[in-house]
Design a protein around this nucleic acid. Structure first.
Lengths: 333, 333
DNA sequence: TTGAAAGCGGTACCAA
DNA sequence: TTGGTACCGCTTTCAA
């Protein structure tokens, strides 16, 4: 039924070893033999059993991707880019979604390791599970949110700068009452403060709403700032969850995006591109992150194969501002 | 470094075979030995090497999931449900996205088979690649769009009925000019026709726009029907791609969803739930599909393990109407 | 109830 | 350049 090395060997009249060498591009095979073997292997439809090979070579050509969810469009893009990139190097991805649950994350690592994945790309990473990665020595790369004691290289976003550029844009368009709605993240908050300071706008606690990374935060934030006597003319949403609920909430409360209130969001999605007015966002260049993640992980894997152990480095990628139509110039009143 | 059976055996003072039996719940081990071995294995942090086991037992405990994209929210949910379900049975998912490209699909199957996946769940399936599945005998289940000559059980949606119920809802609310925008799919079209007939509404070709499964179709469709002398009071969008672009287009052309034009969409997404007014949809019960897919595939796998071969059956799942706020009663004029 | 040994499909060393 | 053979970690007869 299944065509293995032995079948090819018999059909070509050489030994299994020779077939193995011929097919894996070893120089220790005569060109003639190689050609013949390759031909026969192809005609028989031979496909190497990656599992058997892996048992011997101690590598599975499998990479684990461990992420909190697949709802955020950035993660979807990331998966797509990582899959394409890793395939070029002969790796397939085993995807594991953790729902931001530490236990599920740890379980993912254990299962993945049981399947002998050669390395993992992780977004999230709680302390327990990171500890597991460290002790097992499984090559790893952390994306977006680095744990305190990382198990491998960390690739992060320049959150300060991405927020700062968004707020600066709003300030340049004449906005001075700029609301800030986000999950709890000090760096993003810093970016907001810095940009305000640069624009000479006083910080006003009333315009800020910080909660969890969920839709409730978006609703509560919008409700809070719109109830103000001196409501904002612009709103900055720091993450997917907040804008997903926050923008509709603005509408529901009778505000028209653009005309009544300018908006900048972080984390792009197809919807934001399509909506009218289309929404201005800052978004991460997922392709760059993916590329970096791939090269760092492959590096870590080869270092480990060689028996080495590296210090974990840090790489920061900046987000770029994509100007669309949700920010309008505020006429001097 | 890595704890294998031998390590556990040495630590427990029994043979490898005994440890294997003890740990895999074989009855041919004394309770005493079993307990001791289990304890030692746990203390050593033993984790079976799934790869080695797979080589021996000819099963990888890996399932391939082959889908066109991860953009459609239905697919994301599906992955999530399948992952949860398969894990309960000890399987992990290797995800492969094809971008609706026949070549990528075929390549996915080949790669997946190289990794010895025990079976595949497929959405899409072109003829060439399905042929590959059939000839290799890889257990498979087709979801949503069955190929002409399937390689395994097919689980489909009752497209006629889902569309029919949507149109019926609109008709009941007094709409008689109901536009239909969708990709090319005869069954959905049938549902539209049937529902119109049932409501005594004449079919009007001008209200229909059928194109590819892409955002262009949404735009073109909306443009076409709004340009009519007697424009529709309601629009039915048959798929994600059309509503994603179509709803914003309606807005752009000055129509307010609900007030000016009622809407029903197929394929739910978080956005539709959040938007104001929230959008009425028909959506598939992904959980049921996933459950069915899992049981059918597991069945096919065990049949194949037993050396058998089954006829491929068909299962149809109905979509349900989720009424929200985008459909308004049309006052008799 | 236990252990020895064969073998799953490859790779890689060693000898020829 | 080729073939023989041990071995990767585990399961599974077969004997004891």
């Amino acid at each position: 039924m299944t065509v293995d090395l032995r079948a090819v060997a018999e059909a070509s009249g050489v030994s299994i070893s020779t077939v193995s060498r011929a097919l894996s591009g070893s120089p220790r095979v005569s060109p003639t033999t190689r050609q013949r073997v390759e031909k026969i292997a192809a005609s028989l439809g031979y496909r190497p059993n990656v599992v058997a090979r892996g048992l011997r070579t101690r590598q599975s050509n499998l990479i684990g991707l461990v992420i909190p969810n697949l709802v955020s469009f950035t993660f979807v893009q990331l998966f797509s880019d990582l899959q394409r990139g890793f395939r070029e190097h002969g790796y397939e991805i085993v995807l594991s979604v953790t729902n931001s649950d530490p236990e599920q994350e740890l379980a993912s690592f254990q299962t993945l390791r049981g399947h002998q994945v050669d390395g993992v790309v992780v977004i999230g990473s709680y302390e327990v599970s990171t500890e597991y990665l460290r002790t097992t020595g499984l090559p790893a790369v952390h994306l977006f949110r680095p744990p305190e004691r990382p198990a491998g290289d960390c690739i992060t976003i320049d959150d300060v700068e991405s927020t700062r550029s968004s707020i600066r844009l709003l300030a340049e368009k004449g906005h001075r009452r700029i609301a800030f709605i986000n999950g709890r993240d000090p760096e993003t908050m810093d970016g907001y403060r810095v940009a305000l300071a640069e624009a000479g706008i006083p910080f006003d606690d009333e315009l800020v709403h910080v909660g969890g990374y969920n839709t409730d935060t978006g609703i509560a934030g919008v409700d809070k700032v719109l109830a103000l006597d001196d409501p904002p003319t612009a709103v900055y949403f720091g993450c997917y969850e907040t804008w997903l609920s926050g923008i509709p909430r603005l509408q529901e409360l009778g505000r028209t995006v653009g005309d009544d209130v300018s908006i900048v969001c972080r984390d792009d999605a197809p919807m934001l591109r399509w909506w009218r007015p289309s929404i201005t966002v800052t978004d991460v260049e997922v392709g760059r992150i993916a590329g970096l993640a791939i090269s760092r992980l492959l590096d870590a894997i080869s270092v480990r194969t060689a028996g080495g152990r590296t210090e974990s480095g840090r790489y920061q990628v900046s987000a770029k501002l994509i100007e669309r139509d949700s920010v309008v110039e505020l006429s001097a009143s």
